[in-house]
Each structure stands twice: as C-alpha cells, then as structure tokens.
C-alpha cells in the first residue's frame, strides 16, 4: 500500500509545530499503524532525517501508551470501536489514502515532541484518590468479601480503563470525565472502596479541575473512541457520587 501522510512535527514543547507531508510506500496491509510509522522512520533515518516521535509500549492494546489522532479521531477510524492505535491495521485504510496524524490535543496534555504528549495529569488525578488505602500484604482469601456478580461486572467494566487519554482528546471540551468516572466507579462500586468513597470522589474531581480539564457537556465522543469500551454511565455515577459526597461533607 502507498499512503500520503500529513504528520504533526514539533521539535519541542515550546517550538512551533506544523503538518509535514510524507509518502509511506510499500506498506504491507497487515502492518499495524505503528509498524507503518516504524517503516517510514527507518526510511527517514536512512536519509539522515529526524524520525517521527510517537508513544508506544506493549503494542497489544493493553498498556495505554500509544495515542495519535488519526483523521481527527483518537485511535483512528470512526467505524472501529474498541481499538488502540497499535491494534489498528493498515488494511482498514485504502491504497493512496491521505491520512492526518496528529497528537492527542488538550491544554492539559502538553506536546513533548511531534506526536508525544505529556499525559501525567491523568496520573496525578489517579494519585489523588484512585486507590484503596489498605495494609499491603498477601492477597485476601477468595470470597472473604462477597460481591454480587452484577456489581463485580460493573466494577470490572470501569476497571478496564487503560488510561490512554483518548476520551480527553476526543472531547470538544477536553474533559477527563470518562477517565475520572471510570476510576471513581471502579472502586466506588466495590465493598473495598466504600470507606473512602466520598473523599475519593471529592479529591479526584478537585484534582481533575485543578489540572485544567474541561467540563463534560454530554457529547459522548469519549465513549465512541474509548478502546476499553467504558460507557458514559460511569460519568453518570461520578455526577451522582460527587453530589452525594458534597452533601455528606456539608452536613458532617
């Protein structure tokens, strides 16, 4: 396959960026999107040019490292749900197609270089409450705490979040509500999360606001692009739990 690429190049966080055009030639249809960039980078290196910088790690869709906004959609084409960029294959594109490759955009995700953005704001939100304060030790006995199947399933659904930040990048408001909703719901839906439920919710929302993420206005673009298929009902839960936590704090 031959493709025309328009790739965002930016030397550093402060440098002015621009779209640069490249030809990706002889790309096997079975290459992943990142492998296609690898092939192009080999060519650039051979010519003595700077390779395109992009984030990647596991390349099997579970680590949340890869990003890229492809033709305007984080992690690529609209009709492919639950896909990370590393699991996107070139056979999904057509020969000769022009592809825009740009970073995950949000003011809270500053560009480090080219397509790499700093997503540590999500880590800081996680550190503000996305855990259970507990004595670290051996794993508890199985079934020591009974959890109804439906609750276990809904907690697992939220826990599937890999923290890639596609929700923020897809949101017209750069809101992190799907991420925070997933992290809050994951623990607030389990018995182990109950003692710190209110404080967790208040702290994580406070941190989310401090980090400069926008406000959800229910566009639900996040849900459509989420590679872990997190539903927006985690945002419903976040809205509910935040109000309950605020009231509880006010009357305590």
């Amino acid at each position: 396959m031959n493709l025309k690429l328009k790739v965002w190049r930016q030397k550093s966080a402060t440098a002015e960026g621009r779209l640069a055009e490249y030809e990706a030639r002889n790309i096997p249809p079975d290459a992943s999107f990142l492998e296609m960039l690898d092939i192009l980078n080999e060519e650039l290196l051979a010519k003595g040019d700077e390779p395109i910088a992009f984030d990647h790690d596991c390349r099997e869709g579970i680590c949340g490292s890869c990003s890229l906004t492809i033709n305007g959609i984080p992690h690529g084409p609209v009709n492919l749900s639950a896909t990370t960029t590393c699991q996107l294959y070139m056979r999904k594109f057509t020969d000769g197609q022009t592809i825009y490759i740009e970073p995950f955009r949000a003011r809270s995700f500053p560009i480090v270089r080219d397509l790499i953005v700093d997503r540590s704001a999500l880590d800081r939100i996680q550190r503000s409450g996305g855990y259970v304060t507990a004595r670290a030790g051996s794993a508890p006995d199985g079934n020591a705490i009974l959890i109804p199947k439906t609750e276990a399933d809904s907690a697992m659904e939220a826990a599937a979040c890999i923290g890639c930040g596609a929700c923020v990048a897809s949101c017209p408001n750069a809101s992190a509500m799907l991420f925070v909703g997933a992290k809050v719901s994951h623990l607030n839906r389990l018995p182990q999360g109950q003692p710190e439920r209110h404080q967790r919710t208040l702290n994580m929302v406070k941190k989310m606001d401090e980090e400069g993420f926008g406000n959800c206005s229910n566009h639900y673009e996040c849900e459509a692009v989420c590679p872990a298929e997190i539903p927006v009902t985690v945002i419903t839960q976040l809205n509910r739990d935040y109000a309950a936590a605020s009231v509880s704090k006010a009357v305590s």
Partner: peptide, 25 residues
C-alpha cells in the same frame, strides 16, 4: 463553562472530525 471548555481544549487539530453528527450538541 463554555469559556473554561474553550481554554481547556486549547489549540485544535488541523483535521477535525466527530464520530457522529451532533447538530444540537
């Protein structure tokens, strides 16, 4: 909220797309 959202988004990508048409939103 809209002002904050605009500031939170910052610079937008050259290619802009949504996963479905959303005229009301």
């Amino acid at each position: 909220l809209a002002t904050e959202n605009r500031a939170a988004k910052g610079r937008t990508n050259e290619m802009r797309a949504t996963t479905s048409p959303k005229p009301a939103k």
